[in-house]
Design a protein around this nucleic acid. Sequence first.
DNA 1: GATCTTCTGTAACAAATGTTACTGCCTGTG
DNA 2: CACAGGCAGTAACATTTGTTACAGAAGATC
Lengths: 210, 210
Amino acid sequence: MDELIINTYGGIFEQALIEEIVSVGKLVEFKEGDVLIDIGKYIKTMPLLIRGAIKIMREDFDNGELLLYFIEKGDTCSMTLSCCMGDKKSEIRAVAENDGLVVMIPVGKMEEWMGRYKSWRAFVFQSYDSRFKELLSAIDNIAFMHMDQRLYNYLYEKSKINNTKVITTTHQEIAYELNSSRVVISRLLKAFEHEGKIKLNRNNIELLRS
Amino acid sequence: MDELIINTYGGIFEQALIEEIVSVGKLVEFKEGDVLIDIGKYIKTMPLLIRGAIKIMREDFDNGELLLYFIEKGDTCSMTLSCCMGDKKSEIRAVAENDGLVVMIPVGKMEEWMGRYKSWRAFVFQSYDSRFKELLSAIDNIAFMHMDQRLYNYLYEKSKINNTKVITTTHQEIAYELNSSRVVISRLLKAFEHEGKIKLNRNNIELLRS
DNA sequence: GATCTTCTGTAACAAATGTTACTGCCTGTG
DNA sequence: CACAGGCAGTAACATTTGTTACAGAAGATC
């Protein structure tokens, strides 16, 4: 366990904090598709991501869903942080984008560390900051851009997060994550293909020009 | 100055902190329409709102604009907070919704207080938390709702913030804040009027049923 | 191989939103 | 009062997005 944490967080946290994390943290593996946090749930442990990627989703009151952003190695979700500290319900859903690994930290420790470790404070604030940026970026996407651009950004992000040019998913799945409909996505993807940007296959999409 | 601050923040901050605020804070009045913070600017002092309301806007790369949420008495903008702590450029614009008053706190103090005052820490986190909620709510609006519903919410919010049933503004102004166009807003407002929800006059809109 | 399910392509249409253009009205200013 | 400028109403049309329906292709199952 030690090497894993040192590997990911060694550059960020001071030695004493790393040791604390090793001693109180619990490693948990997850698989693609696992729902790590759901809307309306209370969270009692906070995850620090070591391997894999997690997607953060927002849900409409009755049906719609929307991908907000991804979280990668070395990150945490400050919204979860908010929940923990304030003992509030989660506003978002976190779903594993692929297989991965987290260290779970009990809530109590987090607050304690806020007072004791400067590097933890910095981490928490920097985490808040990047989450704000990502939310704003999500807002820019849906407020200022058309579906074709949003779709293209989506493909690009997926490709980056999974570190591959071949995105394995269905049009329906994309439609869910962009809160659109399958037919619209198929239509736009077809247009991209005609423009030579992608190649469409069954159950996967190949990015040509990145 | 003392009574003003005690009046607004007395219930939240401990006595010693109030005294510090009184001694280092600088009162600044602002007028409706004043741009308090602009996108791309660095912020060296952080405002605590005492009177009035501030609207937080996001801007598109070339033209579009979008109202994100309002800030009221007793609040601060945690995005500003992010900027201050991290010495980063502002991602948002803050414009006075009406005349008001803030206490400006130098950045240095804020960080110092984080370590010294529990009530300040709580305030900062609670502020982050409510800003997240407001951003999510903004996302819900633009992602899941149609323009008519967004417009109605907008009118409702404006009415609440300014504490009046008569909203003094132009259709063009509303169009800017919702990132839509004047004609669309006029059309929808007319429909609301026909439904008996509002009464349209020149330069103002009267809410009938709240 | 026959059958079933899932995925994709496409057409035809509906609804929402944006754009352009023109009109008349109100109001402040000279 | 005349007039200019900003504001609101409306029509006609374009574009984007969503919906319904159906057909064929790919893959899975038996």
